[in-house]
Design a protein around this nucleic acid. Structure first.
Lengths: 362, 362
DNA sequence: TTGTACGCGTTATCAA
DNA sequence: TTGATAACGCGTACAA
């Protein structure tokens, strides 16, 4: 298995009978070269099995043809799926994806970002707006373009592609109010360092307050994003707040756990209690009862984030803020509250919209 | 926002009052430098916010501190989870993950591998043994170390970390034979370009044949890996082969689809029919009925693959073939066949092991 | 322990 | 359209 050392561009040039410069041009900008010489060079490339040396290229051209993406975790299917779409899109343009994850730890994220910046990524895709100050400092100092995704930074000046988590969550709450629910609980993922989770809780709270309902601290459970923790949270709700008729969950994983716990205790969903999710993962529609949730265009976010990055790298312009469409999907897990539990219904007074519900598309 | 240009190692050296070489050493091998000078250099680094230039480093040191991983798709949670673990492990050693996917298309994979090789990855992790010849050619020519995962290449000479899909699948079939099943169907993912799927089917077939049962071509359904396709495949089985009492599925996703279809038709699982999965994704244990399946140490594969790569890069030795433990998990979805369907039981003659079942751990 | 100087493989500038 | 040649930023023998 004596591997001869890999051939260099100089070898290609020699074999093709051209200068190094011409060989280089042929590969990076073929139109600058005569068709006949181009063929000679390409033939030499094929003959030698020449493979460009990325680092040398990056050093000389100051571009790595590499994009970084930093997400909380691939163990959440919405991020996995989105990254899948992103990688696919990047590959078609000859770009490669450098992936990092931090499991909801801002310091870890900071380190990951630093690592990717060192690797010389041409752009960086992040999730949400919550990041360590060091992250923004680093990116700014490096003059690196980045995109925040899954969220809208309407006040700020960051480039972003996403949607209003607050408005979407408010929409969910409105749906439940419409059905007649008055006693709510919220099961959320940890809101610290997670603007998406925080905004979703805020959206629900806004909408309830706008309709004269307070969300008491006991009615808000924060926990990890897992089916098991969803179950546990629901167990707490059933034990501590038995009057609850509507449980809004921060994502589908938690909602499925919540539904499982309820059903295993003989609490009918949606007969006794309504439960909502968020994300619309595959399972949400297949579960019994199927889950009322908010559908997110997961793959689209990955693909479009890639496209925005590429456009900016090529010197193009993109709108600073781009919104993707999200959609309330009403399925089996929500229904009017049981008669016994219904508050005196204020006939003819449908729920009022909260601030957050202005955008129709959410 | 006038960003001053990023500072270089020369700047650090100047500010610290040392030579370029000393500055370099301080960063790459601190022990080679006096503590006092080290401090001066690090102070300069901090003051200037110096960030090493990865490409220049890679060019000079001929190492990129980067590992490539190429998988079929992140849309399968076992791959997502495994990659998550791998990235995590690599990050702790200062390595970065370059990710590619090919969606079960060998030519696409070939292109992705080429892209990663160009980027100068220090090592490459692949899935399975089925790869385009060009892939092996490229890797060999580049002298790049690689690991095949999720599989064992016992005959070949590739480094690999995985398990025998054949033996594991045979184990599943044996379990069903033990229960008394005689009429089988298999729902598999596409076996073309997918040695894992192929081996699983082969394992079942081996075991059946060893017990005098043929798996007819009609009783083997190949389809896409999705719940929907699992449903469809099960619909076919129920319609075309109503005598079937045991359905072995290529993975849990397919099995869940199969169970859904059966239940929606009022076919009791496991009362009328037993169904098995493979992988043991979270859902398998939470579904009702919970799924009999094979548990794979998904995160462990990712983590250990990373460790093997790192060891080899540092010049260490690893066993060419390493096996991970997989385990049959018997749950609710399997039971003896209904009495009416049972063949005349050969009392006192338990099922015979097939070749594939030699390894006890599968 | 530190410094000097060369090389890593390519791109890009400038002339020809 | 092509060719010579100077960067690109850092690692590392080798010498001091």
């Amino acid at each position: 298995m004596a591997r001869d050392k890999p051939s260099l561009l100089t070898d290609v040039a020699r074999v093709a009978g051209v200068s190094l410069a011409t060989a280089s041009r042929t590969l990076s900008d073929p139109d600058l070269v005569l068709p006949t010489t181009r063929e000679r060079v390409l033939a030499a490339v094929a003959k030698l099995g020449y493979v460009p040396h990325g680092a040398a290229r990056a050093l000389a051209s100051r571009r790595s043809r590499t994009i970084g993406a930093v997400i909380p975790t691939l163990d959440n299917p919405i991020f996995a799926s989105s990254i899948q779409a992103m990688q696919r899109r990047l590959a078609t343009e000859g770009y490669t994806l450098l992936l990092g994850s931090h499991e909801y730890d801002l310091e870890a994220e900071s380190a990951v970002v630093a690592a990717l910046v060192e690797r010389g990524v041409d752009g960086l895709v992040l999730v949400g707006t919550d990041h360590a100050p060091a992250v923004y400092g680093l990116l700014d100092k490096a003059g690196l373009s980045y995109e925040l995704t899954w969220t809208l930074d309407e006040g700020g000046f960051h480039h972003c592609l996403g949607f209003s988590n607050r408005a979407a969550a408010a929409r969910v709450a409105m749906h439940l109010l419409h059905l007649g629910h008055r006693r709510f609980a919220v099961i959320s993922g940890a809101t610290r360092s997670n603007d998406r989770a925080r905004e979703r809780v805020a959206g629900v709270r806004d909408m309830l307050v706008a309709n004269g309902i307070e969300l008491s601290p006991q009615a808000l459970v924060e926990t990890e994003f897992s089916v098991t923790h969803g179950r546990r949270a629901m167990a707490y709700v059933l034990d501590a707040l038995p009057d609850t008729t509507a449980v809004v969950c921060g994502n589908d994983i938690l909602a499925i756990g919540a539904v499982m716990e309820a059903m295993s205790r003989g609490v009918a969903i949606p007969g006794k209690m309504s439960v909502t999710g968020f994300d619309d993962i595959d399972l949400a529609g297949e579960w019994t009862p199927s889950l009322t949730t908010v559908r997110l265009p997961v793959a689209e976010i990955g693909r479009r984030a890639a496209e925005r990055m590429l456009t900016r790298i090529e010197g193009g312009e993109v709108r600073r803020i781009e919104e993707v469409r999200v959609e309330l999907v009403v399925r089996e897990s929500t229904a009017p509250p049981p008669r016994s539990a219904a508050s005196p219904v204020r006939k003819g007074s449908p729920p009022k919209a909260s601030r957050g519900c202005g955008r129709r598309r959410a």
